[in-house]
Simulated scan of single mutants.
Amino acid sequence: MCCSGFLKIMMFIFNGTIFLAGVAILGVGVWVKVDSGSLLGLLDEVEGAPSGLSQLVNVSYLLMAVGAVLLVIGFLGCCGAVRESRCMLLTFFIIVLIIFLVEVAGAVVLLVFQGLADQLLLGLEDEVRKSIKNEYGNNGSLTSLWDATMEEFQCCGYRNYSDFNGSPFFYTHGGNVYPPTCCNATTTDGICLKKAAELSVMPGCFDKLLQLIEENAVIIAAVALGIAALEIAAMVVSMVLYKNIGTKG
């Protein structure tokens, strides 16, 4: 009886943690969805970008789905332990096992992607710089997206200010002006003159995006593996409870 009570408490701890993790992941997914200034949004505006890489903009849906599933299994585990329902505990075990396998696979993919991020972004360089040269200052959505990205991450162009040479924006201003973020310090009118841009040499968004991907890949993979460890413990406890309930019956 004492052992059974202890196992129930353990189920509450494990599943409570999983439930809270689900809330956090769901919250991050919603935040990513409403964050219109994300660098990943640039992939939608690049012609010829690899289809698999462009789907990264939909990562918010994946996060929300994972968060919702974790909420469900957290509730299911707690309810199964309280009601001593073998059916609910078995269902909980099966769902957690499937999620566990998916999370391990996802963590491996993220770690692999981290190593390939540099090569993938280099492969996009020609198309991205071409889109800037042909569309920046002429295409309203692309121009706004680049402005928001450069402002948020304090970068200039894909590589540097020279990406804007020959763009509609560049010619509209007499071939002497760059976007404001291309200068470390702008004039009172918020104008970045050619000479100031050459002297400031602001980093390109390529470096910022690569850093963002690498840092978040490690964090997400670590979180996924940590949750996986908790899920293993929860599966073990659920099966012990399942067996004890069957013996009691």
Rank of each mutant, 00 (worst) to 15 (best):
L40C: 01
L40E: 01
L40R: 03
G41M: 06
G41T: 07
G41P: 03
G41F: 08
G41H: 11
L42E: 06
L42V: 01
L42H: 00
L43I: 08
L43N: 00
L43K: 00
L43R: 00
D44K: 11
D44L: 08
D44R: 06
D44Y: 11
E45I: 01
E45K: 09
E45N: 13
E45Q: 13
E45L: 13
V46T: 11
V46F: 08
V46P: 03
E47H: 08
E47Q: 12
E47A: 13
E47Y: 05
E47T: 09
G48E: 15
G48R: 10
G48T: 07
G48N: 11
A49F: 00
A49Y: 02
A49I: 03
P50H: 01
P50N: 00
P50D: 07
P50I: 08
S51V: 12
S51H: 10
S51D: 12
G52V: 09
G52K: 04
L53Y: 11
L53D: 06
L53F: 10
L53C: 06
L53P: 06
S54D: 00
S54A: 15
S54V: 13
S54L: 01
Q55P: 01
Q55G: 05
Q55W: 03
Q55N: 14
Q55D: 07
L56F: 12
L56Y: 14
L56P: 04
L56S: 14
V57T: 15
N58W: 13
N58Q: 14
N58D: 15
N58P: 02
V59N: 13
V59C: 13
S60W: 15
Y61H: 10
Y61I: 10
Y61V: 09
Y61P: 00
Y61M: 09
Y61S: 11
Y61Q: 12
L62F: 15
L62Y: 15
L63F: 15
L63Q: 02
L63K: 06
L63A: 15
M64N: 10
M64E: 14
M64G: 07
A65N: 04
V66D: 02
V66Q: 08
V66M: 15
V66K: 05
G67R: 10
A68F: 14
A68M: 14
A68Q: 12
A68P: 11
A68D: 13
A68V: 09
A68C: 08
V69S: 14
V69D: 12
V69W: 12
